[in-house]
Design a protein around this nucleic acid. Sequence first.
DNA 1: CGCATCTATTAGAACGTTCCATTGTCGGCG
DNA 2: CGCCGACAATGGAACGTTCTAATAGATGCG
Lengths: 336, 336
Amino acid sequence: MQRVRIKDVAREAGVALSTAALALRDDSRLREETRRVVREAAARLGYVYDRSAAMMRSGKSHTIGLLVCEITNPFYAELTAGIEEALDAAGYVTMLANTAESPTRQRRMLERFREQPVDGVIMMPASGTPPGLIDELEHWGLPHATVVRGFRRGAHAGPDNRAGTKIATEHLLRLGHRRIAFLGGAAKNSVSTGRLEGYSRAMAKAGLTPQHLSCPTEIGVAAALAQALPLSGPTALVCFNDSVAFGATLGLLRGGRLPGRDVALTGFDDVREAAVWYPRLTSVGVSLKALGQAAARVLLQRITNPDSPPQREILRPSLVIRESCGASRMENMRIA
Amino acid sequence: MQRVRIKDVAREAGVALSTAALALRDDSRLREETRRVVREAAARLGYVYDRSAAMMRSGKSHTIGLLVCEITNPFYAELTAGIEEALDAAGYVTMLANTAESPTRQRRMLERFREQPVDGVIMMPASGTPPGLIDELEHWGLPHATVVRGFRRGAHAGPDNRAGTKIATEHLLRLGHRRIAFLGGAAKNSVSTGRLEGYSRAMAKAGLTPQHLSCPTEIGVAAALAQALPLSGPTALVCFNDSVAFGATLGLLRGGRLPGRDVALTGFDDVREAAVWYPRLTSVGVSLKALGQAAARVLLQRITNPDSPPQREILRPSLVIRESCGASRMENMRIA
DNA sequence: CGCATCTATTAGAACGTTCCATTGTCGGCG
DNA sequence: CGCCGACAATGGAACGTTCTAATAGATGCG
């Protein structure tokens, strides 16, 4: 039982190979009647389109490579789902690779994508990615876009990190807090610096000195740090992201302090768990669906129009107010 | 600036096209010297291998389609990472698609994989998948394997669900509990029935009547159900999985009861968060890395040897004892 | 009626690799 | 000296599509 090819469909339908090919693509140059006949023949024989052949001839794969820095992180997992959905809607297949935060693996995957070949790449650069990588992609002629984490230049979609922590800090200030610290964000990248900056600016504007409790983005480490905080320390914590906030919660609980009552806490990313956490986490969030769509948009723009300058879409985040900041009366209200 | 082809490399190296092709595949039929010369020429010109052409000619894509039922679920995300890693190690590229538990989407993705074409498919069937799907895959001649969730037959890798809940229940019995209920597992699939069965058998063996608190696998619902449990109700809960256990924890906390002190709780899957949860969750787990490797193994076996019967690898889980079951003295010890 | 124009269909090359069969070369051996 | 086998390299077809250009037939128009 051989595989059925266009050739076979053509013979069955009694038309030429190129006619059958055209008909299967539903090309308007053919009469509707002819298209129908071919379609029926194809169905009868069980014809299966062979993308690899099409890909080779046309050079278009309608496939996008998606390089995820850490798929086991719920935030990136959800973002991945959003991007995949958006690309799917645009008629593209997603080829996913998980770099697990390894620049080496990331490089290997990019080379594979280049060989595949994919029409373009969306990536969240692994921490430790050499800044020269973008020049290389450019040199390869591989259309690319970054999401969340990005390079100085190139197509990009991401939240406005600075504005996000600024909103969160201002909210805590409004609730009366003065000793507010920033927890997390030890990595040296644009996300960390942006979030720290938003917090610092809001503090400075209020005439207060910022305090940075630097730690890696790990639940365990954040928990230990929070548990060790003296009672005379900060009364509110602006956390780098929700993972850090979850860690801080666990540490505070173990130390007998309840976030939202004894200490105010805000996260960043508004992952799904934030809404059901104990206590429910106040968090800065952008719609990951919107972010995924934005990423798909800037990349596809890059593919269809390679000569126009790369777009950068910076999405404005909003604060989802829940219990952990101590403003539970306003449960589930959004500001800014 | 045209793309560099094998033809160009051959000309640069001063050999025939087929020689260059052989050299680039590092074929031992060629002298090492020749291979070196060609390699150098390729590097000089910046040759990039074109998989789509190779794929078309050879019919092999060295690509495996991975159909994930819900990538935003941490358990499946981690499993995905494990499978991807194992396939990568075996020299295969993973093409991921997220079905988001939609049989329709799942079907569309499978058809795409078939067209691509991929060498095989690993899937975790979306809930509501028609049982006839496996016949179709068989008929398509598409090698396939299921992980965690599976069909009655066909290649499969998954944990021994029955054994898992049996271990957990027996552990709770040993701790002195008698009113033990099973929480979750409302779905009609092999995983639910298997886990429920393991629990029921252990209860029956101890001469106790099982109690099934059926609910869908959703944190919010599980939380509400747990919060509403009367004090005269079960003293221990065997949860369908960690998500349900997390939900139960939140519900109990809100009701003023602390798991591990007032109620004993066990989860299933041992997701990463279980170890840092408050209180740390006792959970039945299999190594997701091992599971990923097993899935890759059974599929590749199917691909390389289509005529041998499909393998089924049932991995024995073990209980990771932490705080939530109330046996915290034995912190982090494993049994069975 | 002849020529241009349009529509529907067709023929055949092309894409870049892999695969198969073949050629050339060299040393050893009868 | 001619034949053989082993080794190294080569030539050319084949894979299943898409693409370009060409063809046949119908229609319009002066």
